[in-house]
Design a protein around this nucleic acid. Structure first.
Lengths: 248, 248
DNA sequence: CGCGATTTGTGCACGCCTTCACAAGCGCCT
DNA sequence: AGGCGCTTGTGAAGGCGTGCACAAATCGCG
């Protein structure tokens, strides 16, 4: 990621509700709390940190600290007001305004993302689809027409698109990122397996599906090597093959 | 995640190459290094930590420390042997054996995942597709026939599937997870926006596309509130509305 | 053969994050 | 009105991860 904390220049007086600079770890959990809150079918007005933490799958102390960071007021002995908490978190995350998102690359994955209901239901509005393949331009997906990528910068500016999603092959990703930046996009969600270089003011988050599987694979390997300890190395290639320069 | 480190019971003697218990942060980066290594079109035999770090988008000191954790031997003054390093990382990640993966839920997203080339090209083999919808059972996707989810436990055992991918709606995810566990699956990649509860020996990784966007949204909100400081709160709702219990 | 350039491996310090444990505060019941 | 139980908010400690800076090691060249 290209976080590069702006440093909170000493000059900024806290007159306006100078944005609470929450820890990154907290920010990453806020959406989870929000989801848990929305999923509450329980009609109760309030919820305790214990209950919400369980619903979100985290430690209750962590949750309380997270919420305290954003100044949210629970009531001791009672809990948090559900409706108020939802409003608070949505405000902090900037979800009260439906943000315009564009998606580049309507291949296999992009097609699925374009139709993903989870975006619309959680505060985002896909307003444009792009692709470099002329054969795909003009295709209609989910009520949107795929446009050629050359139109990206112009349309991004025009539609005030702040977030771009890259679902192209890795080879095209950097070019697309440049086009997004040219269009004034300042947040990028990158599904292409590659490193993007962007200006410091642009945030990039990466999701690499294969990497997730590889991490799981590691744990599988570890678990297997633990349970197989007594036996004699049954599975594939041993870690050897790197002896050299043993004694010089 | 349900990490819950096994505690490394004091009894385990390090006779067998007791698995290097790498820091989680390191594990998460190894696949990135691997990808960077594979992408090297440079025909050189070796690569310096500096160069590889740049290609992977990380700090070079971090990379060296990561590699040192897995005992990988670079050569001072020269760098790391590319081929050897690839072999090492692939071994640690357990990628030398093509792991069997099954995918549950062939809706919008599942469909895309089933066709995602990145899995096959990076050591994984999707061997089965499942869905609960009878209308989808029998459909052929990418050479695989969609089976009914009731067959999951049996087939998972039969095919020795260790990793399962959940791409169902949130409502069905827990049921699917239970079925996966019943089938002996010990690693789950969950795309459904919900918390799964699984036995301690099962690893779960979660990918929530909407959450990623929400995190970006936060940064957008923050950036906007910073640049708009001088002006007068032009955009949406202020954070107020939570006064109450001010003085009792 | 020796020296300098280069690059790895790592000790150390710092900061972030997590977790525990508890005081403070609030509501309810008597 | 008072006390009791429950829950939040937070101080402090510990662990983890990061990044700097440098010693150790290796290669190539004169």
């Amino acid at each position: 990621m290209s976080q590069q904390r702006p440093g909170n220049p000493p000059g900024t007086p806290g007159a306006v509700p100078a944005f609470p600079d929450l820890p990154e770890a907290t920010i990453a959990r806020l959406p989870e709390y929000l989801r848990a809150l929305h999923n509450l079918e329980d009609g109760s007005e309030t919820i305790s940190s214990e209950a919400l933490a369980a619903a979100a799958g985290v430690n209750s102390a962590k949750l309380r600290k997270d919420l305290s960071h954003l100044g949210s007021y629970g009531t001791r002995g009672v809990g948090y007001d559900v409706a108020l908490l939802i409003e608070q978190i949505e405000y902090v995350l900037g979800l009260n305004q439906r943000r315009a998102v564009c998606l580049v690359g309507v291949g296999n994955l992009g097609h699925a993302l374009a139709g993903y209901a989870g975006f619309a239901s959680r505060g985002f509005r896909i307003v444009a689809l792009f692709d470099a393949d002329p054969a795909k331009v003009g295709e209609r997906i989910n009520g949107l027409t795929v446009r050629h990528i050359d139109e990206l910068p112009r349309l991004a500016v025009q539609e005030k698109i702040a977030i771009g999603v890259i679902a192209t092959p890795a080879g095209a990703a950097q070019t697309v990122a440049d086009a997004l930046v040219a269009g004034g996009v300042t947040s990028i969600l990158n599904f292409a397996p590659c490193v993007l270089s962007v200006p410091a003011n642009v945030d990039v988050r990466k999701v690499d599906l294969a990497i997730e599987l590889q991490i799981l694979s590691f744990h599988e390997h570890r678990k297997a090597s633990l349970t197989a300890l007594p036996g004699g190395r049954s599975s594939a290639g041993p870690p050897a093959a790197q002896q050299e320069a043993v004694g010089s």
